[in-house]
């Protein structure tokens, strides 16, 4: 079953460079999926902090993607490397509490492939769901 049909809450952090019209392009998906999908554009993927990823999971994301440029193609030169390392570090941390590392995933995108953010997101949503609903969220919905 793909991630969309599995009803997963998806959070996508992405480097703004992929799509200069990201704000417009992502709207159809936002309308379609409502709060099931959240987009957070970053000035550079290297701007991501482990805490962002943790908080995304904590506030109910089942799956968090971080879309970064290819290493070497970052305009800040090191941003995608930082992104990779920080994501890996966070994966280690969530694994320590028994959450699957795959809930966090780094996708390196080439800016040349001209995909808009919604196309990219749709591609991710169509992927097979490797994780199920987050055990964290189950409790959130009980609490509130």
């Amino acid at each position: 079953m793909n991630q969309k049909d599995a009803g997963l809450d998806i959070t996508i952090f992405f480097c703004q460079r992929f799509d200069k019209d990201q704000d417009t392009n992502r709207r159809a998906l936002e309308k379609e999926l409502g709060s099931k999908i959240k987009f957070f554009p970053l000035p550079c993927s290297g701007r991501i902090e482990p805490l962002h990823l943790m908080r995304a999971l904590e506030t109910g994301a089942d799956k968090v993607y971080l879309l970064a440029c290819q290493e070497g193609a970052c305009r800040y030169l090191e941003g995608s490397i930082r992104a990779r390392k920080r994501l890996a570090y966070t994966q280690g941390l969530i694994e320590e509490i028994g959450l699957e590392g795959e809930r966090l995933e780094l996708i390196n995108v080439t800016p040349e492939n001209h995909m808009t953010i919604d196309e990219l997101a749709r591609e991710l949503l169509a992927r097979e769901a490797t994780v199920s609903l987050s055990p964290i969220k189950a409790v959130i919905s009980n609490e509130y």
Binding site: Q16, Q22, P41, P43, C44, Y76
Partner: peptide, 11 residues
């Protein structure tokens, strides 16, 4: 440390 345009501002 560098500075960058805030994507949320641009839009």
């Amino acid at each position: 440390i560098q500075k960058g345009l805030n994507p949320a501002y641009k839009v």
